[in-house]
Nucleic acid binder design. Structure first.
Lengths: 146, 146
DNA sequence: GTATTAATTAGAATAATTCTAAATATTTCG
DNA sequence: CGAAATATTTAGAATTATTCTAATTAATAC
């Protein structure tokens, strides 16, 4: 697995813009997040990172993830107090958490719904972000029962 | 501070329905959550609980909160990986988290917006709950700047 | 009122994350 | 290019919210 030059450039530009350095570890972490977009936790990312870079440490995984979040190349996803997950999908989207399989699925949100959510706010309030998390049963798990 | 008999009855009925016992500690915790609805953390609840019940333990606070959540008298509120907060407002509502003051404000959600959010889900998905969290600047903090 | 069962308690354990300080890598600039 | 400056990585310790454990105490049933 190696970063397509498009993403490599994206990463390096973003790092440079923030006065940060391009490193093997950051590329590796970013690449594997793009490769398998299943909202892994830091532990899962650490496990994946080690195959291909056996000497990487957990602290580095946390450091790289923090950097990628700061540079807005990925975002954090939280469900209750479960371990934080990481997501390279930067479009405004919600998450669906399936209670049965534990899978997390991105849900795209139409502009219209978002603007209605903004309008619901009382006067004087301004939001810079809305976090929306569904939980229930996903398509695969509905099928599986039948 | 003591529970109005209305809430006392609510609490005791809910506990009884779940085969659980009515205790001084559970009443105390429930009362203080109803009294000051500012979404306190377990630590804050522990501090408040001690004034008026100096021997209560943190473990009991956690136990009571868990029981109240199970019996659906309160709900948990989470922002990212911050300590869990507790909320006795059981209507379907969202939370607004002010980055400036740290205050959390309940936002009531019209049925229409909720049903639109449900309709956004792909075919085969069913949600039993939607968690919505805004973050930004609340009314008080906008005023304060001027 | 005693037996039964559940709840409370203090403190230990756990788990995710952050911190620390030393070693290493990257960049800068002469 | 090669040394100096600075950022990053690393291993392990520290932190923090929460859960667990086992003994004590309280509530309910008979």
């Amino acid at each position: 697995m190696h970063l397509k030059s498009k993403y490599k450039k994206l990463l390096n530009n973003a790092l440079e813009a923030g006065g940060q350095r391009s490193t093997k570890q950051r590329e590796h972490i970013f690449a594997l997040l793009l490769e398998k977009r299943d909202h892994p936790t830091a532990d899962e990312i650490f496990a994946r990172a080690r195959s291909g870079m056996s000497t990487i440490s957990l602290a580095t995984v946390y450091n790289c993830l923090e950097t990628l979040v700061e540079t807005k190349l990925i975002r954090q996803v939280n469900f209750e107090r479960e371990p934080t997950r990481y997501c390279p999908n930067l479009t405004q989207h919600a998450h669906f958490y399936c209670r049965e399989s534990g899978d997390i699925v991105d849900i795209e949100l139409p502009e219209k719904v978002l603007s209605e959510l903004m309008q619901v706010l009382p006067k004087g309030f301004s939001a810079q972000h809305i976090e929306i998390a569904y939980d229930g049963k996903c398509n695969d798990c509905h099928d599986a029962v039948n």
